[in-house]
């Protein structure tokens, strides 16, 4: 297993990738997935010097594990303070594994209007995909032992924490 890069480098990689997308795409909008993705989107917003506020997605109403876990008790309203219809979207999350979170987030985004294009940026790509969803930008790609996970803590300072799973059931998704 390759070792985890320091946060500075992870953020720099993410920022470089997103900056390139901003150069190529026509007027993209930045949307973070709550909560880690929102922290990162805010950081990118600042570092890229964007003027338009970021969007925040709370995917609780779109999760595919509702029938196992019930409704997230801490659901908060999503906030997309711009029109998404026909827009290019840079979707930001902290970690991608199964891909289920991204599927839920894309479903939610479409309910606001049909985007022209969605680009996915994640701080970490931990593999173990269960759906055909790949990030366009990743701060680092890593492969972890089965019982290990990485979690973004924040918002200030942002840091990555290793978590050991005790319950196999809880580890099937990265939602």
């Amino acid at each position: 297993m390759t070792s985890l890069l320091p946060m500075d480098e992870l953020l720099a990689n993410l920022e470089d990738g997103v900056r390139r997308q901003y150069q190529q795409l026509d007027n993209p909008a930045l949307v973070g997935i709550r909560t880690g993705g929102v922290w990162l989107a805010n950081r990118l917003h600042e570092r890229l010097g964007l003027s338009e506020p970021i969007g925040e997605l709370d995917i609780s109403f779109y999760r595919d594990d509702f029938s196992r876990l019930g409704l997230n008790p801490r659901v908060r309203p999503s906030s997309l303070p711009f029109e998404t219809q026909g827009r290019n979207i840079v979707l930001v999350d902290d970690v991608i594994m199964s891909g289920r979170t991204i599927r839920a987030a894309m479903n939610e985004l479409f309910d606001y209007g049909r985007p022209a294009r969605i680009v996915l940026a994640t701080l970490l790509d931990l593999g173990a995909r269960e759906l055909p969803v790949q990030p366009d930008i990743a701060g680092q790609s890593l492969t972890l032992p089965r019982d290990k996970r990485l979690k973004l803590r924040g918002p200030d300072p942002l840091r990555v924490e290793a978590v050991t799973l005790s319950d196999a059931r809880g580890g099937e998704s990265d939602q």
Binding site: F61, Y62, L71, R76, P77, S78
Partner: peptide, 23 residues
Amino acid sequence: TRILDTADSFIEVGARRIKNVPL
């Protein structure tokens, strides 16, 4: 309070182009 907070989230859903969620 949790019921009220959850309802707040659904109020936001009601302002969307598509007002349905798949729960």
